[in-house]
C-alpha cells in the first residue's frame, strides 16, 4: 500500500471525524449526539484500518474489531439510559439536561 493512499484515507477519516465533531457541537438532542459519536468512532476505526494495511500489521484490525464491539455495547447502554431519561423528563434537549444531579 502506497503512502499516498494512506494520506488519502487519513484525510477522509479526518473529514468524517470533523463531521462527527460538528454534529456533536450542533445537535441539541441527546439521541442525535449519540449518532455523531458513532461517526467519531468510525473515523477512528478507519484510521486504524489504514495504518494496519500500511504496516501490514493485523493489530490495527483487531483494534477495530474491539472498537465495533465497544460501539455496540455503548449504543445499547446509552440508548437504554436515553429511554430512561426520556421517561423521566419527557424531553431529550441537552439544555434541559444541563444539571449535575436531579
Amino acid at each position: 500500500m502506497k503512502v499516498e493512499l494512506l494520506y488519502a484515507v487519513l484525510t477522509l477519516a479526518g473529514g468524517i471525524f470533523s463531521l462527527g465533531l460538528l454534529g456533536l457541537l450542533l445537535r441539541r438532542n441527546l439521541l442525535l449526539s449519540f449518532l455523531a459519536i458513532e461517526l467519531l468512532l468510525n473515523a477512528a476505526n478507519l484510521n486504524f484500518i489504514a495504518f494496519s494495511r500500511y504496516h501490514n500489521d493485523p493489530t490495527g484490525a483487531m483494534f477495530v474489531l474491539f472498537g465495533i464491539c465497544l460501539a455496540a455495547v455503548e449504543a445499547v447502554i446509552g440508548l437504554a439510559l436515553t429511554v430512561r431519561i426520556f421517561r423521566l423528563h419527557e424531553d431529550l434537549g441537552l439544555a434541559k439536561l444541563a444539571q449535575l444531579r436531579w
Binding site: L21, L24, L25, L26, R27, R28, S33, L94, A95, L97, A98, Q99, L100
Partner: peptide
C-alpha cells in the same frame, strides 16, 4: 461548567 454538553466539547476542541 454549565452542564451543557456542547460547551464542554468546545473546550476539548
Amino acid at each position: 461548567q454549565g452542564g451543557y454538553l456542547p460547551v464542554y466539547l468546545a473546550y476539548v476542541i
